[in-house]
Design a binder for these strands. Structure first.
Lengths: 227, 227
DNA sequence: CATTGTGAAGATCTTCACAGCG
DNA sequence: CGCTGTGAAGATCTTCACAATG
């Protein structure tokens, strides 16, 4: 329902396929790594290997961004890195609140990979009043009643939910009411949100279950020969 | 390359589509929730709503498992839950080792959602000798030199990597050498593993980047009208 | 007769293979 | 010549819409 791509100026527009969007951060990471080794130029073959995809897919993905390569040569590492970062929005500053400061919330608040990609954690929030004031790194825990205030103060558009499942919907409602329009949900719950709000869900136990499914298949071959 | 589905006995065989496999745990969770509320029977419409998908997709997905519904009525909650659990392998006992006991590794080791789905964490492992013996819950940290021994002792087929990115490949090699055939990788690194070993990757910062991409698009509409 | 199960149509994603170009 | 960029083919996934049926 999109696909109005590349126009006059060569810059793309609307409608980078979701599958491509999901891989751009991987390419970005790979380019950053290659750049740190001093490499100046990279072929689609090399970059694809570093990113763990095949080169046709990589070239197709990059073609949605524009024509940033040089035929016969490859891509300029730094230039491509910049273009992808701009496309994703990672060279902006994103204020993030984390709600639910259990083990996972703490792990997330300490995760170095956020800061280096433009995500700045501006507040830690919990519903348990007895934990208010507790420091994690240089951030104190606030009570969830302060959510509106904190979101407004930091112009925060992204919220991370790391609460138990049964608290997640209420937290999501509060986030939406406070003006947050993107939610990363670690809680085991399906969230209902209004149009215009994006939710992405990470479920640790689902990933393990998918592995288990395949593991089980490795172990029980031959089950198919029994009509 | 698969699609040899449903045979004589009605039981499916090989080739449940990946997209379906990835949703089965979601249905399982939804069914467990519905079951706890006392619901005995559920229509595809209701279950789809609880799982956050549309009902046509749900029915198509379930059809790959067999014909477990009753026309005009719906699905028996408990029976369907059992069938999905069996299909995924969640009613088995899966021994899991976690390598890298930083914030994330600790969060994972405490995560209740694993145990209840048949995943039993049998060992915590770290490369830092000074942390050996440290207790987390009822498990001590072992040094990575003990990996082979621990994997063998617990007949462990799944490993979780929660180390920094630069240690991940070496850890993966060790896991494979020890006999682990499924790896859940939280480290920011693309892992090379032999055929027959499955790797799934969870990258927390990638999820945030995907949100940022869409968030950016919400804010800058109209960029497309400038040839 | 409400609801499942499913062919068929449509959408999206991947891969191929090669024309185009530096 | 080497490598990108991309139409076109192929694979997979989603949705439609309705026949089958308990």
């Amino acid at each position: 329902m999109n696909q109005l791509r590349a126009q006059a100026n060569g810059r793309p527009v609307l409608g980078i396929p979701e599958a491509t969007v999901a891989r751009l951060p991987v390419y970005l990471r790979a380019l950053t790594g290659l750049g740190e080794t001093g490499m100046r130029t990279v072929s689609s073959e090399q970059l694809a290997a570093a990113a763990g995809v095949n080169s046709a897919k990589l070239r197709k993905d990059l073609s949605y961004l524009g024509s940033y390569g040089t035929r016969g040569v490859g891509y300029d590492v730094e230039y491509l890195r910049y273009q992808i970062a701009r496309e994703i929005g990672v060279n902006q500053d994103w204020a993030v609140v984390i709600i639910g400061i259990g083990n996972l919330g703490q792990a997330l608040s300490n995760y170095g990979g956020f800061r280096s990609r433009g995500f700045r954690i501006v507040a830690l929030i919990d519903g348990d009043r007895s934990r208010v004031g507790e420091m994690h790194g240089d951030l104190p825990i606030h009570h969830i009643e302060k959510l509106d205030e904190l979101v407004a103060e930091h112009a925060c558009s992204i919220g991370v939910i790391a609460t138990p499942g049964d608290a997640a919907q209420e937290v999501a409602d509060r986030l939406v009411a406070a003006g947050v329009t993107s939610i990363l949900n670690f809680a085991p719950a399906v969230l209902a949100v209004p149009d215009g709000v994006d939710v992405r869900k990470v479920d640790l136990s689902i990933e393990l279950q998918i592995l288990a499914y395949h593991e089980q298949r490795k172990r029980a071959p031959g089950e198919e020969v029994q009509a």
